[in-house]
């Protein structure tokens, strides 16, 4: 039941954070293994999803800290994933280009800022939920989200300016 309900969410979180498909599969497996070993420590008065996401977040950040010197690249952003039917082809092409830049740009963010930004903008959690998951004050979360978006916006802006120059 836990696998059916949470595997997609955890796998996507791991993929968006690590940027590597095979690695995110291994990370998902490790997170679920950790879950089964620590399930007895779960306090039933607390929200299970938030508790599980905290466990996943801790595992992903710990793993990143241990291996950050080995990682410089993310998988290529696959156009196939972007089959949005609501937009004109022109907009879709532009958005795909932006997403490719942002996808790579996520690697330039610190692990904490990246995690907060993924939770807010990709996983669409509220600021309050993120504060619970990250165990940080609301103000810190808001400021980290802002910093992450600004960093990515600057990367996007620079990249576009360079392309225009060429």
């Amino acid at each position: 039941m836990l696998v059916n309900h949470y595997s997609k969410r955890i796998f996507n979180l791991a993929y968006q954070f690590s940027g590597s498909h095979p690695e995110s599969e291994d990370l998902t497996q490790e997170i679920f293994l950790k879950l089964y070993y620590t399930l007895q420590k779960y306090d039933f008065s607390k929200d299970f999803t938030a508790w599980f996401l905290t466990l996943a977040k801790n595992h992903l950040i710990d793993h990143y800290r241990k291996t950050k010197w080995e990682r410089t690249k993310r998988d290529d952003f696959n156009d196939y994933y972007l089959a949005s039917t609501f937009e004109s082809p022109e907009n879709r092409v532009m958005k795909t280009e932006n997403q490719k830049i942002i996808w790579k740009g996520l690697n330039h963010l610190s692990s904490e800022i990246r995690m907060v930004l993924i939770l807010r903008d990709i996983q669409e959690k509220t600021y309050e939920e993120i504060a619970t998951i990250m165990d940080l004050p609301l103000g810190t979360i808001k400021s980290r989200v802002n910093r992450g978006r600004l960093q990515l916006a600057k990367i996007l802006k620079d990249k576009k300016e360079k392309e225009n120059e060429v």
Binding site: F11, N12, R149, A153
Partner: peptide
């Protein structure tokens, strides 16, 4: 910068979910 920020926000929101 604000328009770039909007583009970042829109792009991130539309990031696809992969299947397991």
């Amino acid at each position: 910068l604000l328009s770039s920020l909007e583009e970042v926000h829109d792009s991130l929101i539309d990031f696809p979910e992969l299947e397991v």
